[in-house]
Design a protein around this nucleic acid. Structure first.
Lengths: 242, 242
DNA sequence: TAGTGGTCTAGACCACCAC
DNA sequence: TGGTGGTCTAGACCACTAG
């Protein structure tokens, strides 16, 4: 008899994952210890092995389990805490906060890449890039400063656009999907220009987000975003609730 | 004839995912457009529908596709860029950087929760918590400052421990697994005490990481970590390479 | 109400590696 | 070399919702 009903509406794999998580948290399965193998758990939960596999892979992705062929599945001793940052386009961030969005281009010109930028992109120093700086506003107050370098070769069609009006951020998201990205965060003291543009004082601590993206062949763009003082970047961590 | 060989060693689902990603990136499948349904793709790739499903779910998790029953699968218009932060225990971070790890507890005492902390934990103001501050060192130089509040009720066995010697961070990771976590980043200017402890100047911009964790019943701990000036936090973004 | 994704099952073969 | 996880298949039923 093939295919039993897939459960009322509660994904069985999730149920198994949650139950396994409970056992780990309540120390029924101890750190470093082996847990029963997939076949046994399949019997216990009355599920197919594939379903148990899906559940355990979920926990392994979360870092709670370590799985190896032949060696079995063990509870991780020092689980790394994983968090997922969802970085949407600035406009959506601002609008989600219930503010009116605006943006203004401060500078835009072709310019040979400085050593630092060239290195970050992996391009020869002096390669001509499009350099632009813009301010994103929420309710008329500066929200983020954007300092972006764009590899013209990787963004066909971009030369013709008028970024004085268009939003480079959104154009790139929509027109130059990336394959690989590097993201880093740091803090910096606002310099005079940043302070002026953000309408704050020089020296104030700013959260800096630095992103570089590549397609399969070449770098697309690198951007340094300086957030307004006090900006709190939230990430989602932990596991989904039962 | 059941079960064909699972492919030489190349997971077929990954191959399909990569090919689909290529089609998106190279605009063969346009933003907002519907892509063929699972059954058709299964035929095209000579795979079972379950395999195609796995591949497309992967892309949906990455934010490249939006899938809805009956409506089909569409290419996301403004894909949110997702990044995964892997936050391991400080000692591992330091050691991975090739430095010697050390840590020193600066203060430790029971104390009623200040309003701000109580609110963050969702506990009544004045609840007695364990408050501790510690410095983590790399090669003898301050690496991170940790300011932690622990809910004693959620960490049984903790009262008896000697945190002047033990590493609270690691003890908690090993003994009080959390179910839910909130993580946030911001920047702050070092105050005098922070500057002294980090051996830097007051006013310097510090990257601040603020984490709070809960088990299924109650908050466990909240911690504010101040990183040394110039600290760069790397996240992993984008998609896995082909 | 019919088309699409979501999920499960039973069986199978394979890769890996601890023993 | 055998036990364990990794993956695939073919078939099935169900949930959701666009038309």
């Amino acid at each position: 008899m093939p295919a039993k009903p897939a459960g009322p509406t509660a994904p069985k794999a999730l149920h198994i994952a949650n139950e396994a998580r409970r056992r780990i948290i309540e120390r029924e399965w101890l750190q470093g210890q082996r847990i029963p193998d997939e076949a046994d758990l399949a019997i216990e939960f009355g599920a197919a092995r594939a379903t148990v596999n899906k559940a355990l892979q979920l926990l392994a992705d979360e870092g709670l389990l370590e799985r190896r062929r032949r060696a079995g599945t063990r509870v991780t001793i020092n689980p790394a805490r994983k968090a997922t940052l969802t970085i949407s386009i600035v406009r959506e961030q601002v609008e989600r906060a219930g503010m009116d969005y605006g943006h203004r281009v401060v500078a835009q010109r072709r310019s040979p890449a400085p050593a630092k930028i060239a290195k970050r992109l992996g391009l020869p120093q002096g390669t001509v890039l499009l350099h632009m700086r813009a301010i994103h506003y929420g309710n008329g107050r500066p929200f983020q400063l954007e300092d972006r370098w764009i590899n013209l070769a990787a963004a066909p069609g971009l030369e013709k656009l008028d970024f004085w009006q268009l939003n480079a951020n959104e154009w790139l998201v929509q027109n130059a999907p990336y394959l690989h990205a590097e993201i880093a965060f740091t803090a910096a003291n606002a310099d005079k220009r940043e302070a002026r543009l953000l309408q704050t004082q020089p020296g104030n601590a700013l959260l800096i987000m630095q992103r570089t993206t590549w397609n399969e062949l070449e770098p697309i763009t690198t951007v340094r975003v300086a957030c307004q003082p006090g900006y709190l970047l939230n990430a989602e961590g932990g596991y989904r609730p039962d």
